[in-house]
Structure formats: C-alpha cells, structure tokens
Design a protein around this nucleic acid. Sequence first.
DNA 1: CGAAAAGTTGATTGTCTTCAAAACTGGTGG
DNA 2: CCACCAGTTTTGAAGACAATCAACTTTTCG
Lengths: 257, 257
Amino acid sequence: MTHSIAANAANDSGRQPLTPASMKVACSNCNLRELCMPVGLNEEEMKRIDSLIATRRKVKRKTALFRTGEKFHALYAIRTGVFKTCVTAEDGRDQVTGFQMAGEIVGLDGIVHDQHTCDAVALEDAEVCVLPFDRIGELSREVGALQHHLHRVMSREIVREHGVMLLLGTMRAEERLAAFLLNLVQRLQARGFSRSELVLRMTRQEIGSYLGLKLETVSRTFSRFAEEGMIEVHQRQVRILDVERLRGLLAQPGSGF
Amino acid sequence: MTHSIAANAANDSGRQPLTPASMKVACSNCNLRELCMPVGLNEEEMKRIDSLIATRRKVKRKTALFRTGEKFHALYAIRTGVFKTCVTAEDGRDQVTGFQMAGEIVGLDGIVHDQHTCDAVALEDAEVCVLPFDRIGELSREVGALQHHLHRVMSREIVREHGVMLLLGTMRAEERLAAFLLNLVQRLQARGFSRSELVLRMTRQEIGSYLGLKLETVSRTFSRFAEEGMIEVHQRQVRILDVERLRGLLAQPGSGF
DNA sequence: CGAAAAGTTGATTGTCTTCAAAACTGGTGG
DNA sequence: CCACCAGTTTTGAAGACAATCAACTTTTCG
C-alpha cells in the first residue's frame, strides 16, 4: 500500500516536485519550461525570452486572476496551483470552460477585444508568470520559435475546446465523467504525479458545470463508478482502480455505426 | 411583401452581393477585406499581404476542404459558400463544431500538430483563398497589423467556442435553436443579407449535431417556434417574425440566480 | 422519373434534473 | 481544543425533457 490515498494526500501537501523554492525569476531555469515555452532556443534567444517575464503574481484560493470585462494586457503562465475559467451568460448562468494547471496558459480569450471575456479563478493558492502581451508580440517578431509556439498554444486551446464540444454534444453522463477523470490523470501524470491517484481541486458543482451536468449527477456517477470497482472515492481524493474499464466507457456505447 | 421568402430564395440563387466575378486575385481589392484581413494598412503592406494568397481553390458541395489527419500547411479564408467543421471521436460519433461563411477563417486547428484534427466540408459549392501558413508567419513578423490580426482571429475562435460550450452545457433545446438562429441571421446581416430571412445551408441532422440535439428534436422545435408565430419555416427557408421573443427565450428561463 | 435523402410527427422510453433530506467536512471563534 | 456552522456531498423519489423507435411525407438529385 505504498500508494494509498493517504500517501497521495501527503505527497500533495508537499506539492511541486518540479519547482523548488530557490528558483530565479527566469524561464531559462524554470522547470516548467518545456510545458509553456518553445524548445531548442540558443542562449541569446533564451535571454530575450527571460526578459518577457514582467513579474510573478500570487493568486489566493477562490480569488480571480482576471475577470470578465477587465482590460486585457497579459497572458499568464501557471506556475503552481489549479485554475478554473468560466464564462457567464447575460442571465447569470455560467459554464466552466476549463481547468488549468502548471505550465498551461490562460488569458487567450482577452486578445480579440482587448478585454477578458471569462473569469479565471484559482481553486487553490497559486502563482503565475505575467507575460505582457505587447512584449510577446515584439519578441515573437524576433524569435521565430516563440511566434510558432504562441500559435501552437492558441491552436491547442481551439482543439481542446473541440473535444469539450464533442463531450458536451454527444456523451452521456458516465462517459463525460470518465473522459474528465482520464484527462485529468493524464495531465497530472505528465507533471510527475501518480497515474492512478489524484486530488480533485474542484467541487462537484464545478465538475458538473464543466461537464454540462448537475452536481447530483456527478456525485451519483462517482458513486456508480466506485460501486463497480472502477475507482475509489473519498471526497476529493480519487484512486483509479481500472483504467481500462474507464477507457472502455468512452469507446463502447455508440459502437460507431 | 417585398421580402417574401420566395424573394429571398431568388436573391439567394444570385448570391454574392459582395463579390462580383470580375475581381483580381488580391486582398487589396477584395470586398471581404474587412472581414478577414487587418485594416489600416499602407500600400506597401497591402502589396505584401496580396503576395500571401497563393491560390484560390474551389470546393464542391459535400466535398472536404481538408480532413482529419491531413497535413496542415495553410489557413483558408472563405470567399463564397458555407462550410461545416466537424470532429470525430474514435468510436465514430461526430460533432459539428461550427458553420463558417464568407470572410471567416478555417484551418486553425491544424497548427498545433501540423495536422488537421477536424474535417471542413462545403455545404454548397464554395471558394476559398489559400493562405500558406509559413508565409503568414514570415509576413506577420514584418507587418505588425497582420500579426495582431492573426492573434485576434484565433482568440475570436476561442471565445466563440466558449459560447458554444455555454450553449451545450446549460441551454435547453428551445434556447439552443433560438441562439443558433439569432447568431446565423446576425452574421448574415453583417454580410448584407436580410435580418429576418435566411436559407439554411445545413440539414436538421447537422444543426442537431452542432447543438447537441437529435434531428427530430430540431424539427419539433422548429415546428413549435412556427406554431407560436415566432418564425415561418418552409424546409430550409426560415423567416424570423418575432426577433424579440426569440431573444427572450435566451434570457428568461434561469431567471439568473 | 424514381430512388435516396431529408424532414415531420406521434408514442414511448430513458436519462438526467429537480426537489428534498441528511451526513459529512473543514474552518473559525469562543 | 472543541463546538458550531456554512459549504459540500451523498442519496432517494418524482418529474421533465429529449432520445428513441417508427411510420409517413416531401424534396432532391442523379
């Protein structure tokens, strides 16, 4: 039982296997570099990119990095913590459009109208690098790799949202939750965490909003997965016991006719 | 009755109020310029942008401009015709992610992995400008306005998809269809068409796929709107009789708590 | 023209939502 | 340090909405 949920929780309080505290404020020696910056730069280019980071900013749990309507002036690279982004309709309904973690970029929505069109809220105490957008523009004119990297980041977001649309448009509750869990655990694994255990940073309500389900449905579906022995759930701590069966939920039901 | 549905249909067969046939192959004198290119360029810059257009390409109804898995090498600016883009899950289910018309850009999904991740299919005979992506990269390094324009196009797509996610995640069938019709008519109006009449280029099935509904539900909802006097439907020809009530469908139901 | 595709409408079913109550958790202040 | 309280989660029962299944009509296009 070396990997019990309790052990995972402990590991988790001492989070950031990738980001020791003693780090200089620079991309060039940031452990998240491969996640949020282009690779294969020479020293000169790296120095320039370093100059891009204006500041870091700490964001307390439950507070916003930016909100709808605020002026856009920077993108943010997440260093630590998990964020949610959500859009709000005129009538007050809102929709979580994504959960973002270390190495991912938020703020792309603001570019079109020079104004943010969604809220980015920290689900736990977090820290971000502030990347002033006009600096990104200048630099990417000089450093081709940065230009292409930015394009890829934006394109990746478009493709991710295609996937969410597929989920929301065609999947049933069980499939949605399975897809959600598999996606989360895959991203956590890429960051050095367990491939089978995770701590949810968001509420059932927030998961439901993201998946187009009510919180009760999310809760019930978790319970059903647990009953069937596919996962183990203790509040926000989840252990995946049978990845294959979870994956199976995604491929099965339409049977592809 | 100057704007009868029949009249609209007639107008429609003689489409292209914005693009006479005698046009040179250049952005500088393209009537869609404001839609798909940056504004406020000097002559020198305009000339460079013109050089970006490698070719035009005609796409027959029901054929693909590109398909999932094909190598990405260009973005496409739609000159005439309407496209749908759709993603396909491993199990064969697919989801229409958008309908694109004159002046809009498709192909952004291909940038991340140098490979398209969705299909773009013409719903009617269409023509596009081919914009080789490496040329866009070079040019946007030289022409700041083009660079910023590209960023805005991508950001706009991200924001649009946020809206679709809100629709798929929170709206009921009537609201979805109302939102769809209002969005469509608004974009057509921006292109010089009627604000109250439109010809759907897509099937009920395709509308349903986009809205996360079955085709029967789309058909029923059209019928209900018609019964209630909000619209008039004759197959694919739709006349909007009461925009305000349609708009009301979007704001009402949650009453915003 | 004729076959295939698209659209409409009805009856029934299934899934998710809604409403409700109770249990649990974690943080705060006495 | 413990009690308490608000927020979160679980679970049940009933209801609503859209899906499914099915039959039929209309339109499109080769």
